[in-house]
């Protein structure tokens, strides 16, 4: 009798578990690999900021005949843009890490 009962409860637990697995849980928007991918961005982000600033400044100077002022300005702006992008990527990594931590603590409590 006790064995019947335990096997029935076991079945119920297994069915419940399977049902839970069916529903895709809310994944964090960014996971570890993604955070790592984010980190891979940083250097290229900085350099391409400079490069784009240089190109824009160069062509605007050529067009408006203001050599070399716009070039200097836009190299500076490009650098700023690069830094912005790096900060943005860092923020995304941080957010992903925070989400991960939060999820972990929730998982431990639950």
């Amino acid at each position: 009798m006790s064995m019947e009962k335990s096997s029935l409860e076991d079945l119920s637990a297994r069915v419940k578990k399977a049902r839970k697995n069916m529903v895709p849980e809310d994944r964090p928007a960014l996971n570890d690999t993604q955070a790592y991918g984010m980190a891979m961005r940083l250097v290229a982000e900085l350099l391409s900021g400079l490069f784009v600033g240089f190109v824009i400044g160069w062509f605007l100077d050529k067009w408006l005949g203001t050599k070399p002022w716009l070039l200097i300005t836009f190299i500076f702006l490009g650098l700023c843009a690069g830094i912005f992008n790096v900060m943005r990527a860092a923020k995304q990594i941080e957010a992903a890490a925070a989400r991960k931590r939060r999820q972990k603590t929730e998982g431990n409590e639950g």
Partner: peptide, 21 residues
């Protein structure tokens, strides 16, 4: 806004340069 536009324009550059490099 100018910085944001420049930053937006860096996207194809950083995207392609990263893979290439």
């Amino acid at each position: 806004v100018v910085i944001e536009i420049v930053s937006y324009l860096t996207r194809p550059i950083s995207l392609s340069v990263r893979l290439f490099a």
